[in-house]
């Protein structure tokens, strides 16, 4: 259960030329450990998560998710890989407005075609794990920003992913709530033996990670918080 990114380069079309968002980036995240990625805006942090999450194909380099080479997969197989092995926590919670907190998790099981009575229990347990057991029947508009973010995290864990990718989970929260979210992510990473990458602006939060990488102009260097 690891994430391995090997010499990945990603460019976007930019006018007549190409903009290099990731420049020969390498990253290895072992199971049960949390790597924080820091760096200025526009340095390529989200792009790194997009590549790791198989949302975009890199120009060069390879991505292994739990031992599977994502480069060899077509669009359908990448979607399957995402729902089976990858948990994504979005910067904005991106919850579906019509679903209750519990259903936000249950839909993940529905995507894989594995709906069963145990799914309900699992969703309830996960909401419990993020401290939202009492709010399972609320819809996103009835939840606070921090509560939504915790639903977002629980949803990412629903299908027992090998890799957890988290994009700026604390940007919409105050410092204290932000620290709680980082605590939660650390605890879940250890407990469930996931390979976790957390992008954050906050160097204070990054200091709690097992490792820290610094992004600058598309290059990733081992950094200190």
């Amino acid at each position: 259960m690891t994430l391995l990114i090997d010499e990945v380069t990603l460019t976007y079309p930019d006018g007549d030329g190409r903009l290099t968002a990731l420049d020969a980036v390498g990253l290895h995240v072992p199971a049960g450990s949390l790597t924080a990625v820091v760096g200025p805006s526009g340095s390529g942090k989200s792009s790194l998560l997009a590549v790791a999450g198989t949302l975009v194909r890199p120009d060069r380099g390879r991505v292994f998710v739990d031992g599977v080479d994502a480069g060899g997969l077509d669009r359908t197989a990448r979607a399957a890989l995402r729902r089976e092995r990858i948990g994504i926590v979005f910067q904005q919670p991106n919850l579906l407005p019509s679903l209750t907190a519990a259903e936000q998790l249950e839909v993940m099981a529905h995507l894989t075609g594995r709906m069963s009575p145990s799914v309900r229990r699992r969703a309830q347990d996960l909401l419990d794990a993020v401290g939202l057991a009492a709010l399972a029947r609320r819809r996103p508009r009835e939840l606070s920003g921090g509560q939504r973010q915790r639903v977002n995290i629980a949803r990412a864990l629903m299908n027992d992913p090998a890799v957890l990718l988290v994009d700026e989970p604390t940007s919409a929260l105050d410092r204290e709530r932000g620290a709680e979210v980082i605590d939660l992510l650390l605890a879940l990473t250890r407990e469930r033996r996931v390979a976790t990458v957390v992008v954050t602006h906050d160097t204070g939060h990054a200091g709690r990670a097992d490792r820290v990488g610094a992004m600058r102009d598309g290059r990733l260097t081992a950094g200190t918080a």
């Binding site: 949302l55 979607a79 995402r82 579906l96 995507l111 894989t112 299908n159």
Partner: peptide, 16 residues
């Protein structure tokens, strides 16, 4: 379409 993008990112297939 934003919800659709989220579902796709979460791994929903297009036929689904």
């Amino acid at each position: 379409s934003a919800d659709v993008a989220v579902l796709k990112a979460l791994g929903a297939s297009t036929p689904y």
